[in-house]
Design a protein around this nucleic acid. Sequence first.
RNA 1: GCGUCGGUACUCAAGUGGUCAACGAGGGGAGACUGUAAAUCUCCUGACUUCGGUCUUCGAAAGUUCGAAUCUUUCCCGGCGCA
Length: 428
Amino acid sequence: MFKFEIHKKLEGALGRAGIINTPHGDILTPAFVTVATKASTKALTPEQTRDAGVQVVLANTYHLYLQPGDELIKNAGGFAKFMNWQGPTMTDSGGFQVFSLGVAYGKEISKVTTITDPNFLIPERSIGTEAPLAKIGNDGVSFKSHLDGSLHYITPEKSIEIQHNLGADIIFAFDECTSPTETDRYQSEALDRTHAWAKRSLEKHKELEKQKAEAENSQNLAALPSLRGLRHGQDFPNSPRLPQALFGIVQGGRSEELRKKSAEIIGAMDFDGYGIGGSFAKEDMETAVKWVNEILPEEKPRHLLGIGEPEDLFMGVENGVDLFDCVGPTRIARNGTVFTKNGKINLMNAKFVNLFEPIEKDCICYTCTNYTSAYLSHLFRAKEMQGATLATIHNLYFITKLVADMRASILNDTFQEFKETFLKNYLS
RNA sequence: GCGUCGGUACUCAAGUGGUCAACGAGGGGAGACUGUAAAUCUCCUGACUUCGGUCUUCGAAAGUUCGAAUCUUUCCCGGCGCA
């Protein structure tokens, strides 16, 4: 069952090391959650994902709802079983797609922007070259499928329903991720919407959990005779679903007032944990996280949504974040970039063509212990997909180990030294 | 030998009198990527540049023309056909 326990706190800061128990295993926190949007860690098998150090994967409600459909996944026994992932799982609610397919569609605004980015100076909501695929109403969001153009209406209730069908251990409330370029007035309206949606998500979740418990009770009574009809080794077709934990999401853009208000309101609701969402200006991220985590209940886990650059992970951990997910490590790997202790490098660069050394000499990941940079460079140049696989393995190993090392450093009181040493090399 | 078609930048390949330093693709060089519209996207790729331009290019040479990668002649090279 879902439970969070803090093992040790960082002195003079909000950070902590702990453990989350889920029905499918434990997560040592802080932890990096690997993104498997469409029930697949792109380029890796679940075994490779696990071997790279990944504890938990996160899939996406909107994408799986469109393809192959949440009912199908329910019939498959949930997305974890569907993809053969033996471990804890999460699903995002689709709230990010409200943003990425909405205001951010066709623009260069992303999850994190720099304040000097010209997009930051554009207050208009309709600057994009293409018409947004997501349109926001107070009741929910209408999406035009990027796959076939069909129209779909997602409400908080619908998102929770889909997420129950997908069957992750931890699910998220449906929220509106806003762009930092929005006006204060819009941020405030959007925040009210997110709060209303959080409440509705929670209510729907409780209702479904109750139904589930009732169904389970009645099923237990009839279980023995019905089991006889099953072939050996076959799973119970509608096996009782395990309870799912629901995280509420704090928004509020760049505003201290709104962030704190959101933390108060969401924090007061009966969620199992909390997500911190939003598209950030890089320089606003730390303050936002701090404002929020000073208010959120200490005894519940916090997830900084979509963040995963090494320097951001240190910032988050220090400021009380327990979970992170990010497409970065896997995406940049597919595009030829890998992490090293001295910063990111692009394997496509000419200097790696003849470098018969691992990406990192002292790295003990599968990729570094078996392959040279020259080989990786060759794979990327030749467009062999194994390049993506090997680079992804390295990046996931790098990033999960980094967070695991942060955890260890909290436990043995060396977090600050570890952080300084690492960042000095990494950012130089 | 005669006829015919062709020879364009690293490669393939458009262009067939001015808007051509020359479309496009590949290759090459570099950059980006943060709850995945992403094995994707962007920029550069003749030389020099005070970034406004300047210079040298379209097999070679000579012409026609105000102006030629584009037309003419000869030569060189290649494909095909006929001897």
